[in-house]
Structures are given as structure tokens and as C-alpha cells.
Simulated assay, not measured.
Amino acid sequence: MIIDGKAVSEKILAAVSKEVADSGLTPCLATVIVGDDPASQMYVRMKHKACDRVGIKSVGVVLPGTSTTGEVVNAVAKLNADDSVHGILVQLPLPNGIDTEAVIESVSPEKDVDGFHPYNIGQLFSGRPEFVPCTPGGIMTLLAEYKIDTKGKKAVVVGRSVDVGRPMAALMINADATVTVCHSKTDNLADEMRKADILISAIGRAKFVKPDMVKEGAVLIDVGINQDENGKLCGDADFEAVKDKISAITPVPGGVGPMTIATLMQNTLKAARILSKN
């Protein structure tokens, strides 16, 4: 079974568009980008395009790559103080020399639609999530949409980043899965991966996941965005090699990626609803 993130994201975007129209609110997402990294610029453009589509206003703050941590924090502080802005997204990675943690912590938790602020991460790990990081949140929506049961299942998350691996593990624990988190220092990584009923790979290595690393009938969620030897976009999984051994897989492109932006739109509308009541 191919888990079609593109189709599910279209459904979510249509629902958000209707909710925005019915709400009487004018949700606003502000993006902050530092420097001129082409990939970051592309991702920010995609987010603004999604905002336009669902009726969410968007504003972009562009800072030079030479900016200091203080200058980025000051830009965020202005957005925190602006009542017309409901969600703030700082595009990562930030250039070398900028304290990423200080910038993330400067975002007001109630406007933290990326879900990276320590307060929101703490809420997630305590089982009371407010804003969930968009990629893991989108994955949970996909599992629910395709009726993939997580209760009692062995979930293995490969990767321990704060934007995917760690919050993914927390969400799976909250969904009653038994979770193992693996990373670059894990001994016998392939052995751990083979135990997974649900394998979530966010390792960032092209075609790394081979058939001998997956259990027969497992569900494989591929978070990787890589380029293969021919420069073609691919995931962490060797898709053609593993697809006949597993029961379900997210393709790259068209799997997890579209869900990340759809979830961001949901989070921005949620922030607008919460702030409008305050």
C-alpha cells in the first residue's frame, strides 16, 4: 500500500480553507529567513503559497546571513509583539554563528507553530501537546487516515533530531506504541530496525534502508529528503527494493513532505483561534 501524503494533504488544506472562511478570523503566519540558502528559500516560498491557498495571510522577514543572534532575536520579538501575527516560523537551519536554541526560545510559545519551543516540547512529552512539530504531526495524521494501528505496536524511530526524531517518539508513546529511538551511535542498527512493526526513518541517507533491515509486513514511514547517485530526489528507503516486503510505505516525493506544510496550516489556524480568545 502506498501511503499518499499528497492526497491526504489536499484534503487537510481544503478543510483548513473552509474553517478559515467560516471562522471570521484572519490568521497570519510570519516567516523569518536568515541568509540566502536556496533550499530554505524554496521551503519558505512553499509555505507562503500554501497560506495563499487556504486564506491565511503571510508576511516574510528576510535577514542577511551576517546577522547576529541578537538581531534575529530582535526580529522575532517584534513579531511576538504584533497582535496581527498569530504564528511565527523561523526557517532552519540558521547560518553558522547564530545560536539556534536562543532563537527558538525567543519565539512566544503561543505563536510557536513549529512546535520547537521547549515549553511546547515539554507539553508534548508530558502527554498534553499544544503545538506539535509539523512533520511528526503530519505522520500521525497519515497513520490515522490509513487506519494503521499503533496500540501495542513496536515503533522504531531512526533519528533523534528535535524537529523529527524526538517529538515523533513522544507522539508514538502517546499513541500507545512501544518505542525505540535509534541514531548514528546505535549498536547493531539493522537488528533494531528489523524489530519494527512501524519503522520511521529520518536518518537523511539516500536509499539507506534495504530489504534486510525491515520486517516482513512492516509499515515504513520515510522522512528522508535526499538525492540519489543520479541527482534524483529520493528518501531514506531503497523504495523499489523494499516495497514488496512491507505492507505500507510513504513515497518520496509525495509522502511525508506535503503533510508537513498541511500541518503547519492547521497549527497556524489553531494559534489564531487561541489568541483571538485571549
Rank of each mutant, 00 (worst) to 15 (best):
K147I: 00
Q41M: 12
S40E: 01
V54R: 07
E240Q: 14
L189P: 15
Q123V: 03
G254F: 13
L142K: 02
T150K: 09
P38N: 02
G5Y: 09
M172A: 06
V209P: 01
A262G: 06
Q123A: 11
V256R: 01
I104C: 02
Y119H: 08
C182F: 02
N226R: 09
V44L: 12
T68K: 10
G159M: 03
V252C: 00
P258F: 07
K147F: 03
V158W: 05
V223M: 10
V242K: 01
E130H: 15
N230I: 08
L63S: 10
L29K: 11
K57A: 07
D187P: 06
D82M: 13
T135N: 10
K11T: 15
K151P: 00
A175N: 13
R160Q: 11
N74M: 10
I12G: 02
R45P: 00
L171V: 05
A272C: 10
Q91E: 14
E240G: 12
I173F: 14
A102C: 11
M193F: 07
K210I: 02
A272W: 07
D163M: 15
D36C: 09
L79D: 02
K6N: 11
R166A: 15
G165H: 00
V156I: 13
E216A: 14
L264S: 02
L171S: 01
V162F: 09
